[in-house]
Amino acid sequence: MSAIVFENVYRYFTRDGKSFPALDGIDLSVADKEVVALVGPSGCGKTTCLRLAAGFEVPTKGRVTVGGQPVDGPGPDRAVVFQQFALFPWKSVEDNIAFGLRNQGVAASTRRERVSAVIKLMGLEGYETAYPHQLSGGMQQRVAIARAYVLDPEALLMDEPFGALDAQTRIMMQEELVRIARVNPRTVLFITHAVDEAVYLADRVAVMTRRPGRIKEILDVRKVRNAERWNHHERIEDVMDLESFVHLRTHIWRSLREEKIGVAP
């Protein structure tokens, strides 16, 4: 069963009375427990896709379903990890993580268990009572991911989750995410500008055209990963050094470059 399905999705924006197409017929499905990366040139509408799945926006035509149900507004079944973290600065780390569970009416003792489990998973021990401003960017994003994970969501939607981090922290977080996904696999749809991040993390990579966005091609990374045994390498830099990895990455770059030529105003 597919967890996330975009069925012939169109999205138009109106500005000054004129209508602009942002998405021009998106068909995409993310299978259960699959990780799909969405890449594309700036302004292609990938963020819009994510927001449609999250329920922050509504498609003009077509529909988006998650877990078989059409999306009707945001909710904890489609947990979002924002680029700018969006943690509540006035709550401690553990209160931030527990907040969604409180909304669901989860009993206090169960809450505590689940929260400490995910704190352990994300390597946040010792920081439970800290406030976000006291944490580095990487740590804050861990909290944001923890907050999403603890909800046990149908789908995890990540909007450039590592975009606000410096390059080195970013790479460390990518490694982390792979480790966590092995322990606790989930259905994930994420957006990124970094092509090697997409290839490293995803089972499939969907490349979008420039605006108005459509799915240009989808690459099956999992097949290559399994065939070339990327998982036998612990370190990210070793994986990124492999010829098969480089090959995929270059292919995607070239595909994106085609979209950038004749860049729209």
Binding site: A86, N103, Q104
Partner: peptide
Amino acid sequence: EAARMLGTG
């Protein structure tokens, strides 16, 4: 948006 996503009443 995060608050809404987290199902806040």
